[in-house]
Design a protein around this nucleic acid. Structure first.
Length: 485
DNA sequence: CCTGGAGTTGTCCTA
DNA sequence: TTAGGACAACTCCAG
């Protein structure tokens, strides 16, 4: 008796086996299953992954391949144009079905639609699923029928409308015909010459197991302190640190929703922390709504009034910001944490983004691009949406006069300077009083701390009050319609 | 169509 | 030291 023709699961941003709708659908057909990942670097309309994301993807694929192997299957890895690679796999395996979970960037959506349109007439059963979001970005509408542009009403509407689906079990068996593919290492995702990833290896465990461990650890205690703990960058468990796992689909938001709700219903988790945490998950969701309806979110001002903004072109200042040498300790600590670990605490992301776009008056796109390249969680929706939010050009954005003060933010959220001392060790000897403003320290204090301003640690790139005034003036000019020209 | 309340995360000055 | 109000005006969204 010959076996049924196989079903292909095309993995993309859903690198997990549990609660994966495409995997579950493929297994449920009873067909042999072929698991495929295609590295399509030049896909039209898609944004090439940044260096840190590639590092993560490399590790995540290894974890996925191992998990599939333990189910008796194999992850087949190919490189090249997705449609052609998928065609090859169909031909080589005789597959008659293809399943995947949806993506939401315009280029990816179009590519997937064209593949679906091409395969259908050939008798291939193509099905796509939602494995990445709580609700599809087109499904939740305001009373007037549009998409939500303000977070709070969106959050309320989602809470009222969302029904978390039943969890889909992890498959016990995943086997099918074996075909040739590349080794994951051959994709060249891991950095070489130099290999800068040392700090990342120790900070992270990419893959579904690592994601599950993070979630369990966070819901096992820290979530109850989340409303305050989330603002303290020195704490290692103040936030969930699930963002890169979510980015690559090692865990889905529905799994998080279920885990939080069941913890709450069992009385293990308090409501305040739980709902605050879920609201952050829904911010990610909101960003996908914005991206879906504004495909060029990463390149175009959401609020077009900002097209009249005159940004400064200052490559030296941009470089100083990127390297963590602005002279503001909390800014520099954040930028160095990012560089070394591929991640930055959320509170600090706001501070450094405000500093770049307001104190330095540099276009938010420059910051967004840097984050895209250096963050392991660089997300096509959250990253541009958040940058625009801080810059003031985004949906439901911070008002323009809200210029974060890098000194008082440091004093408020890193009062004992532990965060700064960890990432700016040259300042570690300073007393708490000066840790967020070294230039205020007298000579004796500096000498005792072993800090030589301008040598060990830079003078501030711009004085806070002056930077703030300059930003406010630029915004005022923008509102009048831009400079004379 | 109109109305009114509300809007993630702040800063700075004044009393 | 601390608490309160100004900062701007606009758009979103529900009723």
């Amino acid at each position: 008796m010959s076996r049924a023709a196989p079903a292909i699961v095309w993995f993309r941003e859903d690198l997990r086996l549990s609660d994966n709708p495409a995997v579950h659908a493929a297994v449920s057909t009873g067909r042999p299953v072929v698991c495929v990942f295609i590295h399509d670097e030049d896909a039209a309309g898609a944004r090439p992954l940044g260096g840190a994301s590639k590092w993560w993807l490399d590790k995540s694929l290894r974890a996925l391949a191992e998990d599939i192997g333990s189910c008796g299957g194999q992850l087949t890895v190919r490189r090249g144009p997705a449609a052609a690679c998928l065609d090859d796999v169909i031909t080589e395996t005789g597959a008659e079905a293809v399943f995947w979970n949806r993506r939401y960037e315009a280029g990816a959506c179009e590519l997937d639609a064209s593949i679906k349109a091409a395969l259908g007439p050939r008798g291939i059963d193509v099905q796509s699923f939602n494995g990445r979001l709580l609700m599809e970005p087109w499904s939740l509408k305001t009373g007037a029928g549009g998409y939500y542009r303000v977070f709070t009403p969106f959050w309320k509407a989602l809470k009222a409308a969302y029904r978390v689906p039943e969890a889909l079990p992890r498959p016990r068996r995943l086997d099918g015909p074996r075909i040739d593919g590349l080794g994951i290492a051959e994709l060249g995702l891991h950095p070489e010459m130099p290999d800068w990833s040392g700090g990342m290896e120790t900070a992270w465990m990419p893959g579904e197991a690592g994601a599950a461990a993070r979630l369990a650890a966070f819901l096992g205690g820290p979530v109850d302190q989340y409303p305050e703990g989330r603002d303290r960058p020195a704490l290692t468990d103040g936030t969930s640190a699930l963002s890169p796992h979510l980015r690559f689909g090692e865990v889905g938001p529905a799994q998080i929703w279920r885990a939080v709700m069941s913890g709450m219903e069992a009385g293990r988790i308090g409501e305040d922390g739980a709902m605050k945490f879920l609201s952050e998950i829904v911010w990610r969701e909101f960003s996908y709504v914005l991206l879906f309806h504004n495909p060029d979110l990463a390149t175009r001002n959401y609020n077009q009034g900002f097209d009249h903004m005159t940004w400064r072109q200052d490559d030296a200042a941009l470089a100083a910001w990127q390297r963590g040498r602005t002279g503001y300790p909390v800014v520099d600590a954040g930028m160095r944490q990012l560089w070394q670990t591929g991640w930055m605490h959320n509170r600090v992301r706001m501070i450094v983004a405000s500093f770049l776009t307001k104190h330095l008056l540099i276009d938010w796109r420059a910051g967004e691009a840097w984050f895209w390249d250096t963050l392991v969680d660089a997300d096509p929706a959250s990253n541009p949406a958040s940058w625009q939010w801080v810059a003031g050009s985004g949906a439901d954005a911070a008002p323009y006069f809200r210029v974060f003060n890098p000194i008082t933010q440091g004093q408020k959220f890193d009062a004992d300077g532990a965060y700064v001392r960890r990432w700016c060790p040259e300042l570690a000897g300073l007393p708490d009083k000066f840790i967020h403003a070294p230039w205020m320290a007298d000579d004796a204090t500096l000498r005792a701390a072993g800090v030589v301003p301008g040598t060990d640690y830079p003078e501030p790139l711009v004085e806070h009050a002056r930077g703030r005034e300059r930003a406010l003036a630029a915004y005022a000019q923008m509102k009048e319609g831009g400079p004379e020209c």
